[in-house]
């Protein structure tokens, strides 16, 4: 029986007078890939930022390995890899410098694999180029290089494949499969169709958009 990693119970979130979701339940266990679905503006990004702990605009409970999130936040963060809409790549730093600081922030990233990771995402030869001279896809690939260096249990990825070509996507898919085989799990959003071979769980945010909430 795979262990439950991240559990969300009765999540409720409203933005600008609109209920994005209510009574949202989600249990992400070891070895699972979850795709969050929904149209633009339905609250996918909001859900991801709640799950990773960036946003506190919600009601409901979050658990990490069965423990209330507030009590184990540090543990949770040390097992988390998050790549957001904004990739966290500084335009004025080179790919190498960017990864270097990311490693200092996140001990779950293996700094010794940085070179190899940059090579794997096809940035070999671009290590010393400031990111602002790279294309949008190349910039994103700097962030995606972290996937190759990560020892984190849970990956939360918000539209990771924007501006990434087919071959790149396939490589990341293979990486994700490898990750879940090793007992990790992934929560992600994407507009692209993933390969049918990936065992995918899906959750549609819009299914939780209507609310029978009793306003207290």
């Amino acid at each position: 029986m795979a262990q439950a990693l991240l559990t969300a119970q009765s999540l409720f979130c409203e933005r600008d007078d609109r209920i994005l979701f209510d009574q949202l339940q989600l249990t992400v266990s070891e070895g699972e890939i979850w795709q969050v679905e929904g149209r633009n503006g339905s609250g996918k990004t909001t859900l991801l930022s709640i799950l990773c702990g960036l946003s506190s605009h919600y009601e409901g409970e979050l658990y990490w390995r069965g423990e209330p999130m507030d009590e184990v936040r540090e543990q949770f963060l040390s097992e988390l890899l998050y790549i957001g809409h904004q990739t966290g790549v500084s335009a004025m730093l080179t790919a190498e410098e960017n990864l270097h600081w990311q490693c200092a922030l996140h001990p779950s990233l293996d700094a010794s694999r940085a070179q190899q990771a940059l090579e794997s995402v096809g940035l070999k030869g671009f290590e010393d180029v400031p990111a602002h001279q790279l294309s949008a896809g190349q910039k994103r690939r700097i962030a995606l290089a972290k996937l190759y260096m990560s020892r984190a249990k849970l990956w939360i990825l918000d539209e990771p494949f924007t501006a990434i070509d087919k071959i790149g996507v396939a490589a990341k898919e293979a990486l994700m499969v490898e990750h879940i085989r090793a007992g990790g799990s992934v929560i992600m959003t994407t507009h692209q169709d993933l390969s049918a071979e990936i065992p995918l769980h899906t959750i549609n945010v819009e299914h939780f958009a209507s609310s029978q909430r009793e306003w207290s």
Binding site: L54, E74, L77, Y82, H85, G88, V89, A91, H106
Partner: peptide
């Protein structure tokens, strides 16, 4: 400002290390 705009700030806040130190 630039850390906010490029998402570095999110990464910083998701570090298990104490934020005040950064």
């Amino acid at each position: 400002k630039s850390d906010y705009e490029d998402g570095s700030l999110e990464q910083l806040l998701l570090s298990p290390q104490p934020v005040f130190l950064v």
